[in-house]
Design a protein around this nucleic acid. Structure first.
Lengths: 365, 365
DNA sequence: CTGAAAGCGCTAACAT
DNA sequence: ATGTTAGCGCTTTCAG
């Protein structure tokens, strides 16, 4: 049996290229980094040698001196299976990737799933692999992990997705950038529409508002509008799943048989609610008008009837997060850099962007 | 207005830790890397200083000397929106991540979407950011990109997902590792089950078998079984979508009203086929028995009737890919390291694993 | 068990 | 326009 040859394939270095093309390392470095002050003829020669040798710059060496990597981490806490199957996340990520690509930066995606992952990801972020990080779905406790410590102490530029949900005892970190959809404003849009339709008994199915910011904000938007009308508040809490939406709708119908409209805080839950309504013999929108939230077309366009819902430009949210991060990289001390003010939320201080929403009318309301 | 202070937050270095703890850099390095030959007392002191200072090793510097990063890239070509919403990919990735985590390696996910992405990802892979790569969904043309060149020339350990689909003129690269599900064997299982049920006119709805290996292999499995029975081959090609499955089923019914069973090459298509069957008044399984492929429980358990289908252990496939890669990293010259032989496919040479399948009986056949 | 010194591959002054 | 030099932060002989 032949012994495995363990010789590492020696990769060509700057020095190899320099020797081969008869110039100095500096010159090669210059052509690689596109500096002007090199003769065209030399540029050609060096380029040729580079491709002959299959030379690729060692980013570790480069980072060591420039302190840059041109890579940005996108970190997502992945609660069970959910995140990946989520079209929302798909779009968000696409926006982030595209915007980063525009600036020549590579997005690298990391997942947080098991407890051990936190330390490893923290070391990764702290190890200089990336110039900054965009973080999602971090539950309150998450931020107190090594992760938050690393980001804070190392001054790693970071942007958070979603409004930070603070609880008692949480340190307020005012410089923290974040971007979020206008959940509260969007909910208002939805409920105002229902009011304008002449509906008087408007219920709502919410997400888990003690865990999710988005759920709390959407509920707040519902209350904003109804507070003024003096209408009763008919709220049922669910869990952002289809089945949860169906069950909540059933509970609502039992408690308030006379309701004539419902704002359901996500399209997925709304599709469940629609099913319950159908089973109970309620016509939509004649008997009960329904408005969803998210505008996931794969759902909203295929329900029966098609769903009127609140749209957010998710890809744009992603782009914004990337832009915010890029801006932060230039001011790593986290000095104030307010980009825009949220139209509605009482958000914590710090550079932040709230992305507006709009209502998409289909047939359900 | 206060001027933005652009001072980079100076990160503590090995040297800082050494000075603070009154030992040499070597010693600090030793405690970090868990070497035995350091006094316990010193270890403690150094550890304390490390956490006080919030020191995190610079991986760039480390990589420069060790040639290791403890990171593995997972590269996925993302054709339009599809991949991300795919539960299959979700599971696969989970397997990869978990196996890598077991070995202390960080999985970093990169996407290939637009043409420009290839060069950037190639530079990333070639730049020493990772110890190896696991690549998916690369269509034939993809492999001839910079990407394949980088991997080949730099001898970057790599494992491919799915059997490489070679076309005329493609260079054969025998050393290439790959792992795939046993598509052909699984299809055989499905069709044999139908035969055992006493069905005589067994049709099939296939995936795009001129583009997808999996589709071609599943069709081959169907033919394998039917060749022996002398039964007619009733095949209709579709595109792995639900609607495609529904349409193909309709076409099949038009052409062969007497068919009494159908093997549909994916659960998603099968759910479409089931709908067509229902609309046409065919009872399942009494009139037409249906078998799917994939065993995506979110689909197979919720169809009416629940779907009998071919199961693959997707997470295990992911783990296998990771293990194969880890094995390759020790033999970067790509020397033969056959781990297992495919039970059925005429796969190209190289270390490869074909993951077995099994039939899951529910109600549709 | 610990320290000194060399060097990984690159960029950034500083010369020329 | 190009070359020389000095590190960046780490691991790794080699001494002691």
């Amino acid at each position: 049996m032949v012994l495995t040859q363990r010789s590492h394939v020696r990769r060509p270095t700057l020095e190899d290229v320099a020797r081969q093309s008869g110039v100095s390392k500096s010159t090669v470095s210059r052509v690689i980094n596109g500096e002007a002050r090199v003769r065209a003829e030399v540029v050609d020669r060096v380029r040729r040698v580079i491709s002959e040798l299959g030379y690729v710059p060692n980013q570790g060496a480069r980072q060591l001196v420039t302190h840059r990597t041109n890579a940005v981490a996108v970190v997502a806490a992945q609660p069970e299976n959910r995140l990946f199957i989520d079209p929302f996340f798909d779009l968000l990520l696409r926006g982030i990737r595209r915007e980063l690509a525009l600036h020549g930066a590579q997005a690298v995606l990391l997942f947080l799933e098991e407890p051990d992952d936190y330390a490893r990801v923290a070391d990764y972020l702290g190890g200089g692999h990336v110039d900054g990080a965009i973080l999602f779905s971090l539950r309150p406790g998450d931020r107190h992990d090594r992760l938050a410590e690393i980001i804070d102490r190392l001054g790693l530029p970071a942007v958070f997705g979603g409004r930070p949900l603070l609880r008692d005892g949480d340190p307020v970190r005012p410089g923290q950038a974040h971007v979020d959809g206008d959940n509260r404003g969007g909910a208002r849009l939805a409920v105002q529409h229902l009011v304008a339709l002449g509906r008087r008994r408007i219920a709502t199915v919410t997400g888990p508002y003690d865990q999710e910011n988005s759920a709390a904000d959407r509920l707040a938007g519902y209350r904003d509008v109804l507070r003024d009308t003096g209408a009763p508040h008919l709220v049922e809490r669910a869990d952002y799943t289809r089945q949860g939406g169906a069950d909540a709708m059933a509970a609502l119908l039992d408690r308030h048989p006379g309701l004539d409209a419902v704002f359901v805080a996500s399209d997925l839950m709304a599709s469940g609610a629609l099913q319950t309504l159908r089973e109970r013999g309620r016509r939509v929108p004649e008997d009960v008008a329904v408005v969803g939230f998210d505008d996931l077309t794969s759902i909203a366009e295929t329900t029966d009837p098609p769903l009127t819902t609140v749209h957010q430009d998710i890809e744009e949210m992603g782009r914004l997060m990337a832009r915010l991060l890029l801006a932060r990289e230039d001011t790593p001390d986290g000095s104030p850099q307010r980009t825009s003010d949220g139209p509605s939320d009482g958000a914590p201080d710090g550079p932040s962007v709230i992305v507006p929403t709009r209502l998409v009318r289909r047939a359900s309301a």
